[in-house]
Design a protein around this nucleic acid. Structure first.
Length: 735
RNA sequence: GGGCCCGUCGCCUAGCUUGGAUAGGGCGCCGGCCUUCGGAGCCGGAGGUCCCGGGUUCAAGUCCCGGCGGGCCCGCCA
């Protein structure tokens, strides 16, 4: 179309051909959608052309008339399937001959043209997608679930585009978090408490991890509360003494303060006294405005109140978990008595781990592996699979990390500070544009890659792992699906790679940023054992989907034998809905949702239901199982003829949508927005539902209409199948 | 203090890269249809200062500048 305008504009509007082409290339001119279908199918805003050609506004209609005249009498009328062209205040509106367009669009899908073009994008090149990579200390929650779904969908998209995709999970089995878990586990081992029990392994470890953290924190707070309590009694005693001496406080208030102070011997009433005291003191506020004595008492009172409130909160969380796993609680709470000693033990563990002590490493590895086993079950259920789990504690990564240190040591941008090896990127940036631009407009800053005790840090190991991801797999591009909070670390890795001479790798390491998940009415924290797990999400969706299913009354004809199939299908719908929800928002936007309102986000159901409808049409029409016979269906459909059949409005919209498929997939890939595929699948599904409501295929008397619809349904199903593949939804056949 | 990201009906979201007409869709709400090619469907309705203020332009949700609000990051943590 743009070519047609470029060709015809010189003679009709008086604009140079080259200028028009340029306008299309730069986007000053473009073919777009008019606001309403009744206006036309496509439109081009000609204002810019008129301006270029110096056409006065009152002459617009004439010039446009000449353009339309030329357009409709040229070869372009046919080539662009123009049925009608009109000019309305500045816009050239085009109506498309869908009968002719249909042939092209449908054949493109049915004969595999679209598929082939998409596959040629990757052309067999290897890419790595690292995703999920959650710390193996508690089950995957919906936050990590978002990472998994985005990562897996993107990986599926890449493989549709002809890339050879290696999906990798980086297991962070070193470091503080795992050390806490290992500490808890070792206590339980001594106490003879077995892992798992009635819990899924990762859920059990999650409780152990949280309880270990919480108990240590609780002991610390208890200690601090006691100190604060002592301090405030003393402050009160001093205040009373002072007030009595100075007579600064009315007698009645002083009496009350004295009686409160007397309560000290009844140890337990400290909280009540504090509350009462606060009221009495606020009554004295005016009279004693700036007295230092009052302020001192108030401060110590405040500190006590705050600490005891915090302590109560932690105790509540401890009790919550204690009820769920009593034997774990009993064992841990009887052994974790002093927070300082416990922390010291954890530190020792961590140190031994970082020093790469074999026995400690294997203990860490063993615990992580159990948790990862739970991850795998969760992810398998969601159709998410990996080509490899790469361990941070592996020889490759650790040796590589030491190698990195050794090389960096001799570089001018590195120096020792108090024994630790520091990388000064500010300095490196001075003569490295890559690093400068990477952080711009921020300053690159500095960071440590080796502690003074000779152990490496997370970033160091990540650099080593990045090298492995490229060199070990032969990848051209590596995508790291990692939360936005790690942006800085990711830049540091890229910068260091570049500075170490891995320039290609640095340029082709893509941080695929996604934002966190927030729940209405819950602040998730793995350390405190407060989270909404991915397993629960699927379970909750299962409940929602079952409710909808059984409420429609469809179940009444259900025979016992069919029951199992139904359960399976409902599970599949639950999976699709969970994936749909987590994919529904653009990756770099915070995803907020309310777990009690899952029934409002049924993307999976909507898409799969339309998918099933298309299948059922063809199953009935052709007497075969559609998904198993796609090639045959496509071949047959591509030879169908429908003469001059004029598609209905809905049919036109479906054709439009099918023609969009390729563009959508490509932009989802280029813009790192796999959610676009879901968005598109939803709109196609809605169109399918409309079509299904008002059009017959089998019952259609007109053979041309029937032929057209068969071809349309087959092509739509073919596209839907691709979509369901990319989205990782189960290929449901019946609901 | 500095940097990054986000702000569109009650809620969620598309459109912003490349400016173009009446800002598209979903949930929920209200009112009507649906028993089919296997019942999560269809039609209609209400609901919008596109965060605010300037600027550029024939034209701004879109571009530029300045604010405001929310999230995140600036460790010998991971």
């Amino acid at each position: 179309m743009s070519e047609a305008v470029a060709d015809l504009a010189p003679a009709t509007i008086g604009v140079d051909r080259r200028a028009v082409e340029e306008a299309f290339e730069t986007g000053r001119l473009k073919v777009s959608r008019p606001p309403s279908r009744s206006i036309g199918d496509y439109s081009i805003a000609l204002h810019y052309l008129f301006k270029l050609g110096g056409v006065d506004q009152k002459d617009w209609p004439h010039a446009a008339g000449r353009l339309i005249e030329a357009l409709t009498s040229s070869k372009y009328k046919d080539e662009c399937y123009v049925a009608r062209a009109e000019f309305v205040n500045g816009y050239l509106n085009l109506t498309i001959d869908f009968n002719r367009l249909a042939r092209v669009v449908l054949d493109d899908v049915l004969r595999g043209g679209v598929e082939e073009r998409l596959r040629s994008v990757g052309g067999g090149r290897v890419v790595v997608v690292e995703h999920t990579s959650a710390n193996p200390v508690h089950p995957l929650h919906v936050g990590s679930g978002r990472n998994s779904v985005i990562g897996d969908t993107f990986a599926r998209l890449l493989s549709k585009l002809g890339f050879r995709v290696s999906r990798r999970f980086y297991v962070n089995d070193m470091g503080r978090q795992v050390a806490f878990l290992v500490y808890g586990v070792s206590i339980l081992k001594e106490a003879g408490v077995q892992p798992g029990g009635e819990f899924k392994t990762d859920h059990w470890y999650g409780i152990v991890y949280a309880l270990t953290n919480l108990l240590i924190e609780e002991r610390r707070l208890l200690r601090e509360v006691r100190e604060a309590e002592k301090a405030y009694w003393e402050a009160l005693a001093r205040f009373v003494e002072w007030a009595g001496r100075e007579g600064a406080v009315p007698g009645s208030a002083l009496d009350e303060l004295r009686s409160l102070l007397a309560m000290r011997s009844f140890n337990k009433s400290a909280v009540k006294v504090a509350r009462r005291l606060a009221t009495v003191l606020s009554g004295l506020e005016k009279a004693l405005a700036n007295a230092a004595e009052l302020k001192a008492l108030k401060d110590s009172l405040e500190r006590y109140t705050e600490l005891s409130r915090e302590h109560a909160k932690i105790s509540f969380l401890v009790r919550r978990l204690a009820v769920r796993a009593p034997e774990v609680y009993l064992a841990l709470s009887s052994r974790i008595l002093d927070d300082r000693r416990a922390l010291d033990d954890v530190r020792k563990l961590m140190k031994r781990c970082e020093e790469e002590d074999p026995a400690t490493l294997s203990l860490f590895h063993e615990v992580s592996e159990s948790v990862v086993k739970g991850f795998k079950e969760t992810l398998d259920r969601l159709n998410i699979h990996f080509d490899a789990f790469d361990w941070e504690s592996s020889k490759e990564v650790l040796e590589g990390a030491h190698e990195v240190v050794k090389i960096v040591e001799s570089k001018p941008f590195a120096r020792r500070e108090a024994g630790a090896l520091l990388v000064d990127l500010d300095q490196a940036a001075e003569d490295c544009g890559f690093v400068r631009e990477l952080f711009s407009p921020d300053r690159p800053g500095k960071f440590i890659i080796e502690r003074s005790d000779g152990t490496t840090l997370y970033v160091t190991r990540d650099v080593s792992y990045s090298v492995f991801k490229f060199r070990g797999t032969g990848a051209d591009v590596v995508y790291n699906v990692i939360a936005s909070e790690q942006s800085r670390e990711q830049k540091q890795v890229k910068a260091l790679l570049y500075l170490l001479g891995y320039e290609r790798e640095a340029r082709n390491l893509v941080h695929f940023v996604y934002e966190l998940v927030k729940l209405k009415g819950m602040r998730m924290s793995g350390r405190r054992g407060v989270y909404y797990t991915l397993d629960e999400l699927v379970e909750d969706y299962y409940a929602v989907v079952s409710k909808v299913y059984y409420e429609t009354g469809k179940s009444r004809a259900l025979e016992p034998a069919a029951r199992e199939d139904v359960e399976k299908t409902l599970r599949e719908l639950a999976v699709a809905n969970a994936r749909g929800l987590l994919l529904s928002v653009e990756p770099f936007k915070v995803l907020t949702f309310d777990p009690s309102r899952l029934e409002e986000a049924l993307y999976g159901s909507t898409v799969l239901y339309s998918y099933v409808r298309l299948q059922s049409i063809l199953r009935k029409l052709k007497g075969l199982e559609p998904l198993e016979n796609m090639e045959r269906l496509k071949a047959e459909a591509s030879s169908l003829q429908w003469g001059g059949y004029k598609p209905s409005e809905v049919e036109e919209q479906i054709l439009d949508a099918l023609a969009e498929f390729e563009r959508v997939v490509l932009s989802a890939y280029r813009e790192l927005k796999p959610n676009k595929v879901l968005e598109y699948a939803m709109s196609l599904s809605n169109l399918v539902n409309k079509f299904y409501e008002s059009h017959r295929v089998m019952g259609e008397p007109d053979p041309e209409a029937r032929a057209f619809r068969e071809a349309l349904v087959v092509a739509t199903l073919a596209v839907m199948k691709e979509l369901v593949d990319i989205l990782g939804f189960p290929h449901v056949r019946r609901i």
